[in-house]
Design a binder for these strands. Structure first.
Lengths: 135, 135
DNA sequence: CCTTGACCTTCCAATGATGGGAAGGTGTAC
DNA sequence: GTACACCTTCCCATCATTGGAAGGTCAAGG
């Protein structure tokens, strides 16, 4: 099948399919006589795998590791679990940071009149030379 | 003051200070005879403002708008509030997405034996041709 | 046979925020 | 006078993705 059809069937854009090939995440596609890439079942599987892993926020590097484990019949599930755990902890750290941002911003927004007057605690907080975190 | 001192006083690296100047986020610094950049009170203020806004996750573009409002004595606080609200809603959306990823991954990790056996629900979920979200 | 439109190819560039480093000029302290 | 810390500009890299240009290929229809 052509790259366009593979893209439709996997939800990965043709652009990204070529890119994943260029960086070595997927094996180079077979080529027809006209040099068009030709995809089969296994390629489609790998691309779907990648798309799902991306949706779960795995990096390309992590996905490379997961794909290798997928292909390794003798893989220990502990290794997969380790990668996923490291990733989920990273996600949790980032969420915690973002929640802190949100809490601060919500406080500032609540304190801001939001009318035509120029007095705004949001700008005051960002610009105040004697900066302190609101409590 | 030199760019290095300004960097120390504001927490913005010299690299980034030059970058912010290049993209027009801050006004071009005054130059001494030797072409060294020369920073004053107001520059330091703007850089601190930027650093704090970055810590709250505002994009450079949003910060440009906030800085302009800061300098505008007649700004309506409603405009500042609007920018902050849009941003916080964006943050909340991203957090919700990440929480969904985390929930899915936690379920998969909990179901994974994490031992030397190759059977792993994490890979099964990523690779299954008949894919369904775990409930 | 020729055109049109939809596909495919490769290559180059941009995004946003930041860091790294090279090559070269300047300032200061010993 | 020389060593060292600082400054300058310029280019490149990251990460994942998108966009476009320039050109080749294929199928349908006039």
């Amino acid at each position: 099948m052509n790259i366009g059809l593979a893209a439709k069937q996997t939800g990965v854009s043709a652009k990204m399919i070529r890119h994943y090939e260029a960086i070595g995440l997927v094996r180079p596609a077979a080529r027809r006589e006209n040099l068009y890439r030709d995809y089969g079942e296994r390629d489609v599987h790998d691309l779907r795998f990648i798309r799902r892993a991306r949706k779960l926020g795995f990096s390309i590097e992590e996905i490379g590791g997961l794909l290798a484990l997928w292909r390794d019949e003798t893989r220990p599930s502990s290794e997969v679990r380790r990668i996923a755990t490291v990733h989920v902890e990273d996600l949790e750290n980032r969420v915690a940071e973002m929640l802190a941002m949100i809490a601060t911003l919500r406080r500032l927004i609540d304190a801001c009149p939001g009318d035509a007057t120029p007095d705004c605690p949001i700008l005051a907080d960002l610009g105040d030379a004697c900066h302190r975190t609101l409590t």
